[in-house]
Every structure is written in structure tokens, then in C-alpha cells.
Design a binder for these strands. Structure first.
Lengths: 259, 259
DNA sequence: ATAATACGTATCATATATTGAAACGTTCGT
DNA sequence: ACGAACGTTTCAATATATGATACGTATTAT
């Protein structure tokens, strides 16, 4: 009777029913299929209780009844999983490239994701130098004035780019921010020709950066990779050296993503 | 006040907290990452409520906090998803082959999964003939006296096969059921040489069947495919014709599964 | 064939888990 | 340096999950 009630040690602000429901889904996935009463035994409850959870999961579409009166998980979990996996897959594949670039150039390497017209930093390797850009994972940045952003924008489908240029406010954040629409479109066309983008103190004064887009299996520029550092170290001369390397990396990653 | 309470139309034996929790997970997956208060707004609740669900998902390992105080789904969903997907993947890939075999031979085609020393029927195409085997999806059958089962057993790793032969009761279910251990091991060795198994009225009187194993990416004979029908139609002569086709199909599917 | 058992599903009163408000310390934006 | 927004924790009120009960059907044993 003691081990039956020792769940009091749990944080009392957790949702017990959610834990049980997820556990039910895990059991169904592990066993492939379960009847209401089999599940009841595994969950240490009665048939009525078991049925309630399974029925809820069924209504949510994560579980279905097969012809032998057993319940089995559906492929709906795949939809969830896919969304999550995509985000992690690029990180896993980019990591070795990022390390190599980091060792070669001793500057900060960033991996960005384009979402809701913004750049989200999904991975990075910090420069070991004292003077360095200090961004946190998950931070957001505008696309129009960053290397990551511009390299992606340049390869967006026409209608999406149109929408971007016409709706996003290009407020000046640093001396060189490109605010004029025509000038901005020219810049994107230049990037499209080169394959890479340079952010020359357009978001942060003193910060320079070179970036290239990474295309996913839909040939969509979902991600970008960049090297950024203080303008005094990352001279235009230095960028010239880095250029071909980062292009090579972005092409390789695009290929790995199925593009 | 009315639209706020019209959830009374729901089946009252569903678990509301589970629905909300899953919805929270879906939102996190769709948005990539969300803060407690962003989620609160999307879920139409307050920060405390939102936090409770996220915290629960975090403790379950499905969600983690990133460095910008947002919560994002982890790869744990993949583990769930993978288990489910495996079951469906073989079905999806086997379907066209099964249809082709069905049209060629006009008999019942079965796809089986080996689990807990039993065969589970995970897909089938019924023969259009009046006289036919009537099995339901999800039905279980013993492995030792079915084509599907024997074709898999024959290619099991040694220690697993040992365990099977020594623990499973080979009770006679039909005239030709192989009950003797040595005779059974000889049969498996014959199947290993041929690559396919024949069930000659070993489980059901009057029913004959030919089956071949399908290997997964671990080179494990996780599945098998079979053609079964009445012994009077599925003569040994007929089986001779079918043999090479079913072998070809099973090899192709093994290859597609990464074996 | 028939009885007995196991099972899936539905309903209800009651016990309990969830809820929203309130509060505290921290972070963020200005 | 200030105020607002946020994440987290606590607690009492109450909306919700629970277990018992019941019923019709499938499965198994006799």
C-alpha cells in the first residue's frame, strides 16, 4: 500500500493526466497494438480508465482501432516528429563543418533558420577571441540586415520575397543598414549572382559577416551558415579567403539535405 | 460566456488535460519554440496554466528549455515515431507487390510481422474466390506451423531460434503440423537453403501457403510475405511457379528496407 | 449447443486533480 | 535606474478524472 501512493513526491504542479496519456501512447507504440484491457493491466488501472485515455488519443487522431479490436498508433505522430527532426537534422549535419570553419578562421560560426520573416540562431560555435559577437541560441535577428538573412532572402521564391520587401520595416540599426528598397533589391540580386552574402556593419557597428544559404529537400533556402567577427579582423581581404570555403560548405550541406 | 462553455458537447469521458497537453506539444512543434507566455496566449489560458503543461512535457523529456528561455520539442518524439513508422513503412512498400501477386495468382496475399514469438498479420489482400482463408488484420498466429512464421524462424539469430524451439509448445493444429523437434529443425534448415517456406496444411486443414522472409536494416527477418489458398487450387505444381516470384518480391522488399 | 467468462463501452456520484488568482524574484526594454 | 513582462511557486475553489456499476457483445469452455 506504500509503493502505491508514493507519487506524492512529484512536483504537484505537473499534470498527472497528461503524463498518463503520454505513457499510454508510449505503451501502444512499444507494443504495436494493445486492447483496452491489456492497456489497463499495463497502466495499473481498470478498463474504464484505460478506455478513457485510449478514446481521447483516438479522437485526437493518434490512435486507431484495428479489425481485431486492438488499438494501435497512427502515422500522425510522424507529422509531429518530422517538424522536430528537421530542426535537429541540419544541426547534426552542420556541426563538423562548423567546427572545421571555427578552427580555420578563429571566428564565430552561426547556423540560422528562417522563420516568420526572421532569422533564428539554431546553433553556433563561439570564437575563442576576447572580442566576439555574443549571441545566444534561439536569439532572433532581422533578416534584411544580417548575412544569414540576406543570403536566404536572395533565394526566396518571388512571391515570398515580394511580400517580405513590401511588409518588413527596414529600420537602420547600424551605419550601413540598407534601407532603400531599390538598393536592397540590387543587393539581393548581387547575392544571387555570388551565392553568398556579406553583412558589412549593417546590423551592428564594428561587426562584419559572410553567409551562404542552405537549401532543404524542397530547394527552399531554409537555413544559412555564417562566419562573423569584428571588422578589424574580418577585413575584406580576409573575407575573400573565406568565401570559397563557406560556399563549399553550404553546397555540401544543401546536398546532404536532399537539395 | 456561451462560447466559453460549449465544450459540454464533448464526449464527457475524454480526458481534457490530455487533449490540452497534446495540443501544447503540437503547438511547440509547429512553432519550433515558444515561451511560456506565448504558449499561454495560443492556448487561451494564463501563464501558470501554460507553465504546468510545458513543465510536465519537460519532465517527460519531450520538451527542453533553450538558452533564450523558450521551450522546444526534443528528439524524444522521434523514438515514438520510429516505432510506429516501421510498422507502416513495410506496409506502404509492400502494397504494390502484394497487388501484383494478387492479380497474378488470385489467392490471398499476407504480410506478417514477427513479435513475441508470434506472427501478427499487418496487411493482406483477400482472394476474390469464394473459397478463401478469412483472416483479419491484427490477428495472431503461431510461427511454428505457418509459412510466414517458419520463413522467419529459419533466419533468426541462433540464440533467438534456440530459445524459440525450446520454449514454444508445438501443439498439432492440423494433420501435418511438425511437432518433433529434430524434424522441425531439419525443416528450418531446408527453408534456409531454399529461401522460402511452405506450409502444407500444418495449421489449417486444406490450407497451403508459400512464404518468404523480409529483412530489415539490421538484417533481421522482421517480416514475411505469403500467398495462401486452398490445397486443391494451390497445388505443389502451382507453388513451383509462384516460388521465384515471391522470392523476388521478398528480396526486393528487404533491399528497400535497407538490408 | 449452451453456459460462463472476458471484453468494450457508457453512466454516475464522489474524491481528486486542475484551475486562476496572487505573489515573488528575475529578466528585458527603455 | 526604473517599470513592465516574464517564469515560477503556492493555495483555495471547483471543474475534472476516477472507480464502481451496468449492459450488450464477443470469445472461450463445457
Amino acid at each position: 500500500m506504500v509503493e502505491h501512493k508514493n507519487r506524492t513526491e512529484k512536483k504537484y504542479y505537473n499534470i498527472a493526466s497528461l503524463e498518463k496519456g503520454i505513457r499510454m501512447l508510449e505503451l501502444l507504440a512499444a507494443h504495436g497494438e494493445l486492447s483496452v484491457s491489456e492497456a489497463a493491466r499495463l497502466m495499473d488501472t481498470n478498463r474504464a480508465g484505460s478506455h478513457r485515455f485510449i478514446s481521447t488519443l483516438k479522437d485526437l487522431g493518434y490512435v486507431e482501432k484495428n479489425s481485431s479490436n486492438k488499438y494501435q498508433p497512427t502515422l500522425k505522430i510522424m507529422a509531429l516528429s518530422q517538424k522536430v527532426a528537421d530542426r535537429f537534422e541540419i544541426r547534426r549535419m552542420a556541426k563538423p563543418h562548423m567546427h572545421r570553419l571555427s578552427m580555420m578562421y578563429k571566428e564565430t560560426i552561426n547556423l540560422g533558420l528562417f522563420k516568420n520573416q526572421e532569422i533564428i540562431h539554431i546553433d553556433k560555435i563561439d570564437s575563442l577571441e576576447v572580442l566576439r559577437m555574443d549571441s545566444a541560441l534561439g536569439d532572433k535577428a532581422p533578416a534584411y540586415c544580417t548575412g544569414l538573412g540576406k543570403s536566404i532572402l536572395a533565394f526566396l521564391p518571388d512571391h515570398e520575397l515580394d511580400h517580405y520587401v513590401n511588409t518588413v520595416d527596414r529600420r537602420p540599426l547600424a551605419p550601413n543598414t540598407i534601407t532603400d528598397k531599390d538598393e536592397f533589391l540590387q543587393e539581393l540580386s548581387r547575392i544571387r549572382r555570388n551565392g553568398y552574402a556579406i553583412d558589412d556593419e549593417e546590423m551592428t557597428i564594428g561587426l562584419r559577416c559572410i553567409a551562404a544559404p542552405i537549401f532543404d529537400h524542397n530547394h527552399y533556402p531554409a537555413y544559412a551558415i555564417s562566419i562573423s567577427g569584428p571588422a578589424m579582423r574580418l577585413t575584406h581581404r580576409a573575407l575573400e579567403d573565406i568565401k570559397s570555403h563557406i560556399l563549399k560548405v553550404s553546397e555540401d550541406l544543401s546536398h546532404k539535405m536532399g537539395s
